[in-house]
Amino acid sequence: MNELELLNWARGPGLAYASIIMFFGISLRLLEILSLGRPAEYADTRDDGVKDGLIMIVKRSLPETRHWKYITASYIFHIGLFIIVFFFTPHTQFFRDIFGVFWSGWPNYLIDVVTVLSIASMLYMLIIRITDPTRRILSSTGDYLVWILTFLPLITGYLAFHRLMLDYTLMLALHILSVELLMIALPFSKLTHSFTFILSRWYTGSNFGRRGIKS
């Protein structure tokens, strides 16, 4: 199989399988979580918890002063990834193809800067995770694996765009394949936080609201 055949496979059947598995997984996990429901309430709640749930989503999304270096790096990475995924022109084409909705991409040089910052912040977070004794003890194989799976699309995308290291067609195929790996792993690892973080922040907040603790 030559590199163009690999690319066409990645864009075709590869993407199909990855999408099916990812959506299957998301659907499965969400339903599992939601079907657990709340434990029965045997007393009146203080409040219905709606307002507090919403407040918590916002509050827990804001930075805090402890561990500010790590958190800043994390912000740069998350926001950077969001920008790259949704505002790099070839990606906007991908979404237009899927959703039929279109928005303009940002200039390539801007995306380039954002990519470098995101890669740098990911590397920084890995170094902290390895060198800080507490974090190292807490880290499991899953943590490192997820780091690798998230790092690969970034680095392969950057290398492909700049025509570095490998032939472009092959690099692009590897980039798309690495994204597909990430898609498959998403619902079955801690990356579920991408769609459950809103649920869990809401849940915590609404519990506090019901119990009588200030949210």
Partner: peptide, 27 residues
């Protein structure tokens, strides 16, 4: 070049449906 070579919409829907079925079963 960055788009899917195929019909991605149907895969997503199929995936969601299959997940929903298994999810409900699991629940």
């Amino acid at each position: 070049l960055s788009t899917a070579a195929g019909n991605p919409g149907s895969w997503a829907v199929n995936g969601l449906a299959a997940g929903a079925v298994v999810g409900i079963g699991s629940a």
